[in-house]
Amino acid sequence: MKALTIRQPWADAIAHGSKRTENRSWPAPSKHLGSRILIHAAANKDRTRRPSHEYPRVLTNNIGIWPDTRSVILAIATLTECHFDSACCQPWGMDGYYHWELANVIALPHPVPAKGALGFWTPTADVLNAVTTQQTGVTW
């Protein structure tokens, strides 16, 4: 299983909110489409391209502020589709980027510490074990 590192607050918006489109400057490799992936929160937060009107929706949910944990696996998702921006995937899709569509997102009850990497990366056996033990009954 592969992991994808995403900066905060976007990783939380996927794990705990309604964000189901990840914006990337490159297309998702076709071999990963339809696969379950791990959502990893980067060590650093995103400091770019966040309009001020996005803050309330991104940083809060119906129970308050999201945890903003860093350098952890937060969730599991299925990467279902990838297409270049065509004025779609609102409100999360950004103009001029590839939209990676996610489905079946399951937030982990206990985030798993892990060091991330650019692009897709392979977690260690210990990290995968810590994730899978939390997800009994989930199809991988």
Results as ranks from 00 to 15, higher is better:
Lys2Tyr: 12
Ala3Asp: 11
Thr5Asn: 00
Ile6Ser: 04
Gln8Thr: 09
Trp10Glu: 03
Ala11Thr: 03
Asp12Lys: 02
Ala13Glu: 02
Ala13Arg: 11
Ala13Asp: 08
Ile14Cys: 12
Ala15Tyr: 01
Ala15Asn: 04
His16Gln: 09
Gly17Pro: 05
Gly17Cys: 09
Lys19Tyr: 13
Arg20Asp: 06
Glu22Ala: 10
Arg24Trp: 10
Ser25Ile: 08
Ser25Gly: 13
Ser25Arg: 11
Trp26Gln: 11
Pro27Arg: 15
Ala28Arg: 01
Ser30Gln: 14
Ser30Tyr: 06
Lys31Glu: 15
Gly34Trp: 05
Ser35Arg: 13
Arg36Pro: 01
Arg36Trp: 05
Ile39Phe: 13
Ala41Cys: 06
Ala41Trp: 01
Asn44Thr: 15
Asp46Arg: 08
Arg47Glu: 08
Arg49His: 15
Pro51Lys: 09
Ser52Met: 08
Ser52Asn: 07
Ser52His: 13
His53Met: 11
His53Pro: 07
Glu54Phe: 07
Tyr55Thr: 10
Tyr55Arg: 11
Tyr55Met: 05
Pro56Trp: 13
Val58Tyr: 12
Val58Glu: 09
Leu59Met: 12
Thr60Arg: 09
Asn61Met: 02
Asn62Gln: 14
Gly64Ala: 05
Ile65Met: 13
Ile65Gly: 03
Ile65Arg: 15
Asp68Phe: 10
Thr69Phe: 04
Thr69Gln: 14
Thr69Glu: 11
Ser71Arg: 04
Val72Ser: 06
Ile73Cys: 00
Leu74Gln: 02
Leu74Ile: 07
Ile76Asp: 07
Ile76Thr: 07
Ile76Ala: 08
Ala77Lys: 03
Thr78Lys: 10
Thr78Gln: 08
Leu79His: 04
Thr80Asp: 08
Thr80Cys: 08
His83Asp: 11
His83Ala: 12
Ser86Glu: 08
Ser86Ile: 12
Ser86Asp: 13
Ala87Ser: 09
Cys88Glu: 13
Cys89Arg: 02
Cys89Lys: 01
Gln90Ser: 14
Pro91Arg: 02
Pro91Trp: 02
Trp92His: 15
Trp92Tyr: 15
Gly93Val: 01
Gly93Ile: 06
Gly96His: 00
Tyr97Ala: 13
Tyr98Pro: 00
Tyr98Val: 12
Glu101Phe: 12
Glu101Thr: 10
Glu101Lys: 15
Ala103Phe: 00
Ala103Leu: 06
Asn104His: 10
Asn104Met: 07
Val105Lys: 05
Ile106Asp: 00
Ile106Ser: 00
Ala107Phe: 07
Leu108Asn: 03
Leu108Tyr: 01
Pro109Lys: 14
His110Glu: 14
Pro111Ala: 09
Pro111Val: 11
Val112Gly: 03
Pro113Met: 02
Ala114Gln: 04
Ala114Thr: 07
Gly116Lys: 06
Leu118Asp: 13
Gly119Trp: 01
Phe120Gly: 06
Trp121Asn: 01
Thr122His: 11
Pro123Ile: 11
Pro123Phe: 11
Pro123His: 02
Pro123Lys: 15
Thr124Gln: 13
Thr124Val: 08
Asp126Leu: 07
Val127Thr: 13
Leu128Cys: 10
Asn129Gln: 12
Asn129Ser: 14
Asn129Trp: 12
Asn129Ile: 04
Ala130Leu: 03
Ala130Ile: 06
Val131Ile: 14
Val131Met: 02
Val131Gln: 00
Thr133His: 05
Gln134Tyr: 00
Gln134Ile: 03
Gln135Arg: 11
Gln135Lys: 03
Gln135Phe: 04
Thr136Leu: 15
Thr136Ala: 10
Gly137Phe: 09
Trp140Gly: 09
